[in-house]
Write a protein that binds this DNA or RNA. Structure first.
Lengths: 342, 342
DNA sequence: ATGAAAGCGCTAACAT
DNA sequence: ATGTTAGCGCTTTCAT
């Protein structure tokens, strides 16, 4: 038999020829289908290994109608995205789960709304992804209802009002509540907050947790003590500068990244933390341990949220939406002070 | 004509039936092939729009032998990865270029070497990606020679010794040289350096640039003044602490992230910057502007490097490797001091 | 247990 | 200019 038919791309057909069987049999071997005589299986397997044959994923996808690809969409304008450590860590969790399930992760970042608009149709009449993870969903994000309407399997990072949406969230409300309650317990009186943008469920929930804690202890809400910011370090820096004239004695800051910026602002202003102003952040990112002083913060399981989003997508409980809310935890370091002497 | 043949997934065939033409004609319309009578084209186009037909990318890929997917591989253990801002920004550049060329970006992050080993075969007998970008290649990374051997189209972020490898790099050597020369010009005497890990070309080049600048001005090289670190903020913090006993009066730090950590260490030790110790970083990341004091640094065009990597991959100059080295730039802020009085 | 054949949805060479 | 046909490489009935 001439060998020249066997050159070029290695296909099932060629492996079959080499093994002296049909391509069905090779397919069965490759896919561990039971109906293959052990000795044949062995012979075929040997050739597969020797030749380094690998089934073409595209051809496979065409017949199976599954690609093994998960799309991750971050609808936010991306320039702010990576100025904090949240998204990198989330993506890391998603990647880890994808790896362990042999899925491939595709990342969509948008820089302009034109880009975003251009990509949406691809996501909606989706034939390339087995499922989509929508990270950091904004309130009224138009993508979510469209995904629902087109019956694209997806899960949202962060809760959503429509109960048909599967999501993985962290308990932002309870986290913020815990932080502010801790301030109150320590005797602080003028408790401020630096929040994220209010178009985002997480920001809203953290803000609401702050309000709830004040309300439950009959603290007044002073609007000058509430500064809206954007989750960036620079944003936190500026928000703290705006806050200073209103003389807070404690600030709950909705992210560690903003808290780092806020600490710099305090340093520049020569204000001692926690003696003059106490700080609690949110996230418990690695650098919270080396700020000056080390940051008391609310730990949220970002990595785990990413992993669970993938699991939720893959499990697909017969289309019944899954709503996961992960617990947060107060991590006490030095920035919140101890018992207040006042 | 019964309509019941037209339910289910929308295919070329169904659109053809609705338009009363063959599926080739629809294909031609969809792909803007010239040979279609204008009136037919219009009629078909209308139906395509009405039905919202979209060609199945998987079927297309199978026949075209191109997927429109670019794989981005970050061979580093991922836990250190996102503790600095370099990779997020690089990925942003890659994503931006992918978007504008209608390519899809797939991201591979590894958490363990087992994961890495498991994924390599997929990348090598690659049928899923039109090309691969290898980010932050390590010296002696086994992936590169294997990609070459398997003739997978790829480009490396960061140079590589094998001249067959296409790469996009920044001029680390010149950048570091410029930084240290600036120190020398200002009159500093004991110029230290905090470097990245030496298994990485960028770290090596920045270190070499430091050495070259000292050598060219006949400064002695003192090994106690050279601290190896890991590009993390915490790493920079610790490296600076180890450096202090050796009394440097200036430190060139191979990344802004490490520089931020180093500044914290100096703050804790009550050492004034730049009066007692001057600092120059590398990267010019956003937060370099709000450190205390603002950081003098070497700006490298990370975003652009990511974009050019995609262009290089897509242009594929008949297999002739392309070697791009992008310029860096000294950005003077306050951390390096002005003319030294000494 | 194995092979032959159909078909996933598309493109393109070939006929007309 | 349009339709017919043959694949792309695989999985999966359906025969045997």
């Amino acid at each position: 038999m001439s060998n020249h038919t066997l050159v070029g791309k290695l296909t099932l057909e060629k492996v079959a020829k080499l093994a002296g069987v049909s391509r069905s049999t090779v397919s069965r071997v490759v896919n561990n289908h039971p109906n293959v005589k052990p000795e044949v299986r062995q012979r075929v397997a040997k050739i597969v290994t020797e030749t380094g044959y690998f089934p073409d994923p595209v051809a496979r996808s065409l017949v199976n109608q599954r690609t093994g690809i998960i799309g991750v969409v971050i609808p936010q304008q991306v320039q702010f995205l990576f100025t904090n450590h949240y998204f990198p860590r989330l993506i890391q969790g998603i990647a880890q789960a994808c790896n362990s399930h042999d899925y491939t992760l595709s990342l969509f970042l948008f820089h302009t709304s034109e880009e975003e608009a251009k990509l949406y149709p691809r996501l909606l009449r989706n034939q390339l992804f087995d499922g989509i993870i929508v990270a950091d969903n904004q309130i009224n994000d138009p993508l979510i209802p469209q995904l629902l309407a087109n019956e694209v399997p997806f899960v949202s990072i962060g809760r959503h009002e429509d109960s048909r949406v599967s999501f993985v969230d962290v308990d932002n409300l309870a986290g913020a509540y815990t932080a502010v309650s801790h301030f109150i317990r320590l005797g602080y009186k003028r408790i401020a907050s630096i929040t994220g943008p209010m178009k985002n469920y997480a920001s809203i929930d953290r803000y609401q947790g702050y309000l709830n804690a004040l309300r439950d202890r009959a603290y007044p809400v002073e609007h000058q003590l509430i500064m809206k910011s954007d989750y960036t370090e620079i944003g936190g820096y500026e928000a703290m500068q705006r806050l200073l004239p209103h003389k807070p004695d404690a600030v709950f800051i909705a992210s560690d990244t903003m808290a780092a910026g806020a600490l710099r602002a305090l340093q520049m202003a020569n204000i001692a933390v926690p003696n003059e102003i106490a700080i609690i952040g949110f996230d418990d990112l690695p650098h919270a341990t080396i700020t000056n002083p080390p940051l008391t913060t609310i730990r949220q399981p970002i990595l785990q949220a990413g992993m669970l989003a993938v699991e939720t997508l893959l499990d697909n409980d017969n289309g019944v939406p899954r709503h996961l809310v992960l617990p947060t935890e107060l991590v006490i370091r030095s920035s919140c002070g101890l018992e207040k002497i006042s």
